[in-house]
Nucleic acid binder design. Sequence first.
DNA 1: CTACTTTTGTAGCGATCGTTCGAGAAGTAC
DNA 2: GTACTTCTCGAACGATCGCTACAAAAGTAG
Lengths: 214, 214
Amino acid sequence: MGGVKTGRPRSFDRDRALEGAIAVFWEHGYDATSIAMLTKALGIGAPSLYAAFGDKRALFLEALDRYIRTYGAFTERALAEEPNAYDAVERLLREAAAAYTRPDRPRGCLLITAATNCAPQSADIVARLRGLRAMGVRALEAKIDAATRSGRLPAHTDAHVLATFYSAVLQGMSAQARDGATTSDLEQVAETALRAWPSAADQRTGDSGLAAPK
Amino acid sequence: MGGVKTGRPRSFDRDRALEGAIAVFWEHGYDATSIAMLTKALGIGAPSLYAAFGDKRALFLEALDRYIRTYGAFTERALAEEPNAYDAVERLLREAAAAYTRPDRPRGCLLITAATNCAPQSADIVARLRGLRAMGVRALEAKIDAATRSGRLPAHTDAHVLATFYSAVLQGMSAQARDGATTSDLEQVAETALRAWPSAADQRTGDSGLAAPK
DNA sequence: CTACTTTTGTAGCGATCGTTCGAGAAGTAC
DNA sequence: GTACTTCTCGAACGATCGCTACAAAAGTAG
């Protein structure tokens, strides 16, 4: 099992090509990205692409995997590295505001946006991204649930609702980023969303309706 | 200018066909919807479709216009019919929770989702929907601004930030609906989002960072 | 009925889709 | 050098894309 490979060496950097593929899929999504767009963006021929990555589906899945471990890794890091659930969510939203509006990258989140408009034949891709997003919601929910059980959140806190809310905020921030919102806009969206964080002082008396400040 | 038209009469109901087109575009978005999917769903041939609506682009724009005046009209109604800005936003979010999860319709919002993944040649469609969404944000911002000027909101209220926030929440709710969230889930997301509504009691002391309840 | 108008279904247009074949290029192994 | 392996390039595969020419069908007008 020697490390030296025989045959004609690849003329391009596979990692760089994968980065390029991430960029195109990030910008246009799975279905709307054609092989022609990819070969043009990566500067390689179609046979080279297929030899290196398999087919379009496999290339997307590999790009997605790399995206999650790099550009999207801040989400897992925030939950893992911040002991306090509030700090984790604050950091999550703050870093998302920056990540979704970086001038050197496509806007928004690939995991959120890349498979929104898909033909029925790409249903498996849609399902895969949906599943990954659901994992994110569950991770957030677990973080909130742990904080509630350790007494750092009111006992009546509904972790599922709160996790769904902040996931929706993230998805909304991604959409707003794509619509042209600035980093500052998103930071203030994040700040506003954090006002909904439960505290011991804001327990509502009834549970039938929405709180209605006049 | 007589009302009676000569020639072979149309074999299908144009309005019903337009409704069907709305459903398909709503479900799959603009680019991922093919003419074959439309003709199959509407039960008509391609030439009939082109004779009645022009081309795919024109059909989508007409479907979009009808969508906004019917399924999506609740947003404008909430802002127009509720004098109080808070009541308007509460109603907006509540009705969105229901509208985005109706079992007899595609999930989410067509205006939000239908042009997320598009090829470069559909950039005009993307821009059009973006513009319409921006109009929605501005309408919400105007409503909040009016409430602030009339003293029903704290004077320091940033209408732009608040409008961007609740627009992001709507977009997030649409995404969550597509990801399988229930009506109840979205109602609770709406309820949570309303906790961020500004009140006279919650004026922050500093303005440098995020509020940080421990 | 005939003349006219519009819609219908079939069939196919050129373009692009994702994908692959086959020949030559570019490397290592001996 | 020759043998072998792998990659690159141009070309093209069948399928589908949005769209339309054409002729038969189905109505009104006289």
